[in-house]
C-alpha cells in the first residue's frame, strides 16, 4: 500500500512526538470538518477532533499498516462522532422526558446559532443547509457517515467501507437511500 504518511507514521510509532505533531497538523482541519459534518456544530466538533487525536496518539504503536493512516484517523473520528451523537441523544432524551419537549422540534443543526461560526448571510445556502440538516436527522449514524464521507470528503466507496467498517455493497446502499431521500425533499420543496 502506498501511504504518503508512512514515514511519519513509522517515526510516530517509535515515539517521535514531532512526527506525530506533523500528522496532527496535516489532518487537524480535515478531522474538524468531518466532525462538524457529523455532529453539526463546531463546539462539539472540536471535542470530537481532540478526542480523535488523543486516541490516535495513544494507539499509534498498535496501528498496523493494513490501511492508510488517513483511513485509520477518519475511522477514529467517525466512531468518535457517532459515539458523541449517541450519548448526546441519550442526554437529550432524558431532558425531553423531564421537560416534555417534543423531539421533532429539535433539528440536526440546532436552531440556536453556534457562536463559533462566522455567519454567512446566504439565504439560498441556509435553505439548503436546513434541507441537508433535516436529511441528516432521518439517516442512521452509518448512513450519515457514508453520505458525509462521500459527498463532503470525496472518499471512494472502498475507503468509506474501511472507515465505517462495513461491506462496500452496504455503503452503496446507504448512499442510494440517502440520495433518494434528499431528492424527495428537494422535489417537495419545489
Amino acid at each position: 500500500m502506498n501511504d504518503p504518511d508512512l514515514k511519519l507514521v513509522k517515526k510516530a510509532k517509535q515515539g517521535d512526538q514531532h512526527a506525530f505533531g506533523k500528522l496532527v497538523k496535516k489532518y487537524q482541519n480535515k478531522i474538524l470538518y468531518l466532525a462538524y459534518d457529523l455532529v453539526g456544530n463546531y463546539t462539539d466538533a472540536q471535542d470530537v477532533a481532540q478526542n480523535t487525536f488523543l486516541h490516535a496518539f495513544k494507539n499509534i504503536p498498535y496501528f498496523r499498516d493494513e490501511s492508510s493512516f488517513s483511513t485509520w484517523i477518519y475511522r477514529i473520528a467517525t466512531n468518535a462522532a457517532i459515539d458523541f451523537q449517541r450519548s448526546k441523544k441519550r442526554r437529550r432524551q432524558i431532558f425531553i422526558n423531564q421537560s416534555k419537549y417534543d423531539e421533532q422540534d429539535q433539528p440536526y443543526l440546532e436552531n440556536v446559532e453556534d457562536p463559533a461560526v462566522s455567519i454567512i448571510k446566504d439565504l439560498e445556502n441556509s435553505d439548503l443547509k436546513e434541507l441537508i440538516s433535516e436529511l441528516m436527522e432521518q439517516l442512521s449514524p452509518q448512513q450519515r457517515a457514508a453520505f458525509v464521507l462521500k459527498f463532503f470528503h470525496d472518499k471512494t466507496t472502498e475507503e468509506i467501507a474501511k472507515i465505517i467498517e462495513c461491506n462496500p455493497v452496504t455503503v452503496r446502499g446507504h448512499l442510494l437511500r440517502a440520495t433518494i431521500k434528499l431528492r424527495k425533499k428537494l422535489k417537495d420543496e419545489r
Binding site: L32, Y33, Y36, D37, Y42, D114, A116, V117, S118, I119, I120, D122, E124, N125, L128, K129, L131, I132, F151, F152, L175, L176, A178, T179, I180, L182, R183, L186
Partner: peptide
C-alpha cells in the same frame, strides 16, 4: 437522485469556523 444530490451539495457551502 445522485446527480441532484451532487448538485445540491456542490451549491451547499459548509459554514466556516471563526
Amino acid at each position: 437522485a445522485l446527480k441532484g444530490t451532487a448538485t445540491a451539495v456542490k451549491r451547499f457551502q459548509r459554514q466556516q469556523p471563526d
